[in-house]
Amino acid sequence: MLRRSAAPLLTLRKGAFQPTGLRMQIAIASGKGGTGKTTVATNLAYVASRRGLSVAYLDCDVEAPNGHIFLRPQITERETVGNLVPQVDHQRCTLCGRCGEICQYSAIALVGQQVLVYPELCHGCGGCWLVCPEKAITEVSRPIGVVETGQAGSIQFARGLLNVGEPMSPPVIRAVKAVRFEAEVTVIDAPPGTSCPVIESLRGADFVLLVTEPTPFGLHDLKLAVEMVRALKLPFGVVINRATEDGRPTRSFCEAQRVAILAEIPDDRKLAEAYARGVLACDFSDQYRTQFSRLLESARAPGKESA
């Protein structure tokens, strides 16, 4: 049987990715939203490219992607991401109901004298198609989002956009990650939280940077995020954004958990204003260029942090 991709409309380009010791995927994540993931991700991509490394930036926050605001890419390609959903041939259907029995998502069901499909609930597992004894089900690709690719200076850029009203982002995230860039450093901008879209974004990363802020909410959600990367067995470090004196509980937590704090970005009004206007911190300040360069080094130095 042919293996079918969950993202069939997206054709892969530029040959297979060849992982070597030099290539690295760094994912930027956080439990809490709005802590500065995109700030860290875009600035890291920028300093890496300035250093002459080949860089790819993948915006996996497909519900609310913002990396393009700072990197200003020229989008050259736009491809639809589809999810395979069942289509029932009612002539062939004998109403046996097996499709509804195998479906775990209530996306297909025998209701009275008809099989009904609820495509937005379908995860595209193919169960109903496989189980139908009458071959009355075909799978059709239903668009749920797009992947845009292009170039931001020397940075190869890709982002996913989930269509408004669609609940399931993981297939779009998979499609963003399936874009084949040749890059020594790939920066993955993940969505906030700790559930399936984040896990999908982090899969295959070599290192995770968890961005937090020194507030009770920030710390609470950092604890969840640490639990998550540990469950995924990924090496990681922490970045404290808007760092002030209030960061003490966050620092003690990291110390107690033997988690390295790789950078503290100060609570700087100038930085907040630049962010508001969509300007990269590294674009206006040597201080931030140095800081993000160092952060890039710590993230790339292997075996530095605990899992």
Binding site: G33, G34, E63, V164, E166, P167, M168, S169, R277
Partner: peptide, 28 residues
């Protein structure tokens, strides 16, 4: 509600009476 526009957000908002959308003054 949760941030974003995906599954938990849709589940939080459907058939409610009113949404207050909170945003911040940035391009994002």
């Amino acid at each position: 509600g949760a941030p974003g526009i995906g599954c938990p957000v849709i589940a939080s908002m459907t058939a409610t009476n009113l949404a207050v959308i909170v945003t911040e003054p940035t391009l994002s």
